[in-house]
């Protein structure tokens, strides 16, 4: 013991720094900023989802609802009401957080597969509301969302300006996830995941802790959805469909459930795969994603980041 104490804080700090450096140079090494921005938004979405699946042990199959709600909320506030972009994003987070509170309150009492089914059913209801509602533009979607200016000064219509803004939001989101996981609250969450009856018998009102996790996860998914709407300039029903809920599960699984960086890796892998394959194989993309999913579930359950962590753990164990 003693000398080889494992410090998660230091590891995370290095990881975050590496991502920041990578992110800063990415546009200068030939990566298309809009592509990276989109991937960063999905990375935030996956991190938010992982807060629930990986760190609380709840499988939501309705996270598309929060992603899309935020997209419409941000789009509507900025385009129709003419709000500044920061206020629009804040409003988006608030809306998805409140929706999270409502859906979470209804779903949290259910266990396992029933929880997933309730979240799916409620998210489908949200989908149909968006399909019918006026403000979403129905099948056409909400088009032409202006990006506005950061703090009223920096013109975000410039891809590179928006890129650095999104990168900063992404890094902050990741840091917040770390803080949540490694907080007094995170400790209780871990205890609940490990042994729920025991946590209950020690006097923890387990449902309230889970509900807070659900709301936090929904809010961060909202931050991701709001940013994505800004980046692409429109919001459509695609984001609210159940396939989107499935994609975020896939990203998280491929990257590594319950690891902080896994969802980021997974999101880049899936968004990259879709981007590369879309022109070449058309709708076969779905089949390939499906196969990836099967390989993950059968072959390497820990995901990319999980396998790397396990390998490092083994090395640490042998070097003792």
């Amino acid at each position: 013991m003693g000398a080889i104490v494992h410090r998660p804080g230091r590891d995370f700090g290095f990881g975050l720094l590496a991502l920041a450096v990578l992110g800063l140079v990415a546009p200068w090494i030939g990566l298309y900023p809009v592509f990276v921005m989109k991937a960063l938004c999905f990375a935030m979405f996956a991190c938010a989802f992982n807060l629930l699946l990986g760190f609380t042990g709840l499988l939501s199959f309705g996270h598309a609802a929060f992603f899309a709600t935020a997209g419409y909320a941000a789009g509507h506030a900025i385009k129709v009401w003419g709000w500044p972009m920061e206020a629009g994003l804040g409003f988006a987070v608030l809306c998805s957080g409140l929706l999270g509170l409502a859906i979470g309150a209804l779903a949290i009492r259910r266990q396992g597969i029933y929880f997933a089914m309730v979240t799916l059913a409620l998210a489908q209801m949200v989908f149909f509301v968006f399909l019918q509602a006026k403000f979403t533009g129905g099948e056409d979607g909400l088009q032409g969302i202006p990006r506005g200016r950061l703090l009223g000064a920096l013109d975000l219509a410039d891809d590179l300006n928006l890129y650095y803004a999104v990168l900063a939001i992404f890094l902050a989101c990741l840091a917040l996830c770390y803080r949540i996981v490694h907080s007094p609250y995170g400790q209780v969450l871990k205890a609940i995941r490990e042994n729920e009856p025991r946590a209950l018998s020690l006097g923890y009102r387990v449902d309230r802790y889970k509900l807070l996790a659900f709301v936090l996860s929904a809010s961060l998914a909202g931050l991701a959805g709001g940013c994505k709407a800004l980046v692409v300039g429109f919001e459509t029903l695609t984001d609210a469909a159940w396939q989107m809920s499935g994609e975020v599960v896939l990203m998280t699984l491929v990257g590594g459930v319950g690891t902080l960086f896994g969802p980021v890796i997974g999101a880049f892998a899936i968004v990259g795969l879709q981007d590369q394959l879309a022109d070449r194989v058309g709708s076969w993309v779905q089949v390939i994603l499906g196969l990836t999913f099967i390989v993950c579930v059968l072959g390497f359950r820990r995901g990319i980041a999980g396998e790397v962590a396990a390998w490092r753990e083994r090395r640490r164990a042998t070097s003792r």
């Binding site: 400790q187 205890a191 309230r208 802790y209």
Partner: peptide, 22 residues
Amino acid sequence: VRIGLQRRLGTSFHFWRSERSL
């Protein structure tokens, strides 16, 4: 054991605080 002790601190919902505070 700390999980047992922690509740009385009243910070068990504080997700913005460091776990060092425990």
